[in-house]
Amino acid sequence: MKLYPRQRHRVLQVVTKLVIPFVLMFGLYVQFHGDYGPGGGFQAGVIFASAFILHGLIFGLKRTRDVLSPTVLRFMMASGVLLYAGTGLVTMLFGGELLNYSVLAHEPTHGQHWGIFAVELGVGITVTGVMITLFYGFASKR
């Protein structure tokens, strides 16, 4: 039986398509549950990026680039840093020290919660962007 290129690795392709949503979901879980359990922005970013890397490995770099172009990734990397730094600036606007989250809400614990949430989200976005960019960088070398 003759197989067209896109039909090769049928099993892998189908399994990948099934797995990717769960990987993304787990990434989000690690991201937003990081305050209560093990996890946090860095780990979540890596897990989130691994879904895209898996997609790239199975379906080829070109199709992954259609989903997430390098330009978008640059924006992601920059916006994550900006979110982190912006949180710091906001705490300063509220009259606290740099990254003193206690001032963000009416009571300190709540404020700490919000602050960590924003900062970790920034870390997650940047790490996702950096990981996928690294993958693109190495995968496109001949």
């Binding site: 990397m77 916006s79 900006l82 730094a85 600036l89 740099l98």
Partner: peptide
């Protein structure tokens, strides 16, 4: 009072903005 933090924050924030521009 915030100047020590601003000293590094301003250029740090400028870096990602440059990427976006």
């Amino acid at each position: 009072d915030q100047f020590p933090a601003l000293q590094i924050m301003v250029t740090l924030v400028a870096a990602p903005i440059c990427v976006m521009i």
